[in-house]
Amino acid sequence: MFELRLVQGSLLKKVLESIKDLVNDANFDCSSTGFSLQAMDSSHVALVALLLRSEGFEHYRCDRNLTMGMNLANMAKMLKCAGNDDIITIKADDGTDTVTFMFESPSQDKISDFEMKLMDIDSEHLGIPEAEYEAIIRMPSAEFARICRDLSSIGDTVVISVTKEGVRFSARGDIGAANIVCRQNATVDKPEDATIIEMQEPVTLTFALRYMNSFTKATPLAEQVTISMSSDLPVVVEYKVAGMGYIRYYLAPKIEE
């Protein structure tokens, strides 16, 4: 028996919106640690890792480890039927091939349940080694989304370069070129507006903007985004999920041939 209950159901809706365009089908792993997922996009260029810790749920019961294969577009369709203020419960009984999503309105006057078929998904689970990153940027997530959106009107790739001066996002295309430099700015009224750059070594990497833009679908989840970079390693773009976990996107760099 697996059951989780999340009073702030909108979080789960936002989580699904953040991954459904990147990944078609994925295995959700349910364990005593929490509700997690690791999946690559169909081109095997990006990887998303989600963790929602069991302590973050109002109720969490997992009698034995369970893997639930779901089509994320279908799951998102079902979660779209939950109101933003609804409490969401996810239930799966042992030995069944369905999962039930239950939505309760805050005043308890409307209760819906949606049953979805599970799938057998043959997915590869990758071991992600702990790494010391040469540069870590923390910045407002909305600002990062704006930069990715603006640069994708200029080119297909972004060069992210961290130096003592700050972090530079550059794109180049048929119509011209663009450079956006963000400097460290810790002296702001609100901590969520800060840009903090921790640099051990200068680092410059090139990435496909299509994926970066897809990652920014997670912007409604967190005021800040953390971008961790090292030479010739995938970048990690991390959004925290309201004290209960994270969504981390890993993106392999483009390299000069």
Binding site: E124, T157, P234, A252
Partner: peptide, 14 residues
């Protein structure tokens, strides 16, 4: 021209 690397070139299969 740039070559797009794959994610599994960096992370080992479990």
């Amino acid at each position: 021209p740039c070559l797009q690397r794959k994610i599994f070139e960096y992370f080992n299969s479990n």
